[in-house]
Amino acid sequence: MSVAFVKEESAEAASETLLPDRPISPHPNLVTEAGLQALELQLQQAREAYAVANAVEDVNERRRQAGHPLRDLRYYAARVHTAQLMPVPSSTDKVAFGNTVTFSRDDGRVQTYRIVGEDEADPTKGSISFVSPVARLLIGKAVGDVVQSGNQEIEIIEIA
């Protein structure tokens, strides 16, 4: 086998493992208790995946397999380190981080979302990030308040 071929293979494998870091939000890393637990679990899973990848004997294959877990490991370590655990809202008078808000739109849709941290947000499962446009409009408002979202009005029906 040619030495040049080995170097080319190593360079190719190295370029595959030099993945850019996952972007980290410039916003404060506010989290709920469940959000913090999820981040810690994802960090542990990234550590385990990285350990499995590092056990591969072939150096080029090890580099290939370690790229994604290493990137995830850096991301989740940073997110756990910067996490700011927020207390459960003590009141439902005004919308706050951690509250579940039900609101109606002009078109008749009624939606309910819990306002959570960025990593925890999943609109398909009923949660939105506190930095999302809708959450920013709702935070600090009370039941009965109406806010403008684009061409629509949103009325807060319930805060839990």
Rank of each mutant, 00 (worst) to 15 (best):
V3A: 15
V3E: 15
F5S: 14
V6S: 12
K7W: 04
K7C: 14
A11D: 13
A13Y: 03
E16Q: 06
T17K: 07
T17L: 14
T17P: 00
L19N: 02
P20K: 03
P23G: 11
P23A: 15
I24F: 01
L30E: 05
L30G: 06
L30M: 14
V31M: 10
T32C: 11
A34P: 00
G35E: 12
A38Q: 03
L41F: 13
L41Y: 02
L41R: 13
Q42F: 03
Q42D: 08
L43M: 10
Q44E: 10
Q45W: 01
Q45C: 02
A46S: 11
R47Y: 02
E48W: 09
Y50C: 14
A51S: 10
A51Y: 09
V52P: 01
A53H: 08
V59N: 06
N60V: 04
N60T: 06
E61L: 15
R62W: 00
R62P: 02
R64I: 10
R64S: 04
A66Q: 04
A66W: 00
L70C: 03
R71K: 07
R71C: 06
R74C: 05
Y76S: 13
Y76Q: 14
H81G: 08
Q84C: 06
P89H: 11
P89G: 05
P89I: 05
V95F: 13
A96I: 08
F97H: 00
F97W: 10
N99K: 07
T102V: 10
D106N: 12
D107I: 09
V110L: 13
T112H: 10
T112K: 09
I115Y: 14
V116H: 13
G117M: 12
D119S: 07
A121Y: 06
A121P: 08
D122E: 15
D122K: 12
T124P: 05
T124G: 10
T124K: 08
G126L: 04
S127N: 10
S127C: 09
S129C: 11
S129H: 05
S129E: 09
V131C: 02
V134P: 00
V134Q: 09
A135I: 14
L137I: 04
L137Q: 01
L137G: 03
G140N: 04
K141V: 02
A142D: 11
D145I: 01
D145S: 00
D145W: 10
S149P: 01
S149D: 09
G150I: 06
N151V: 03
N151C: 06
Q152L: 12
Q152V: 05
E155D: 04
A160I: 07
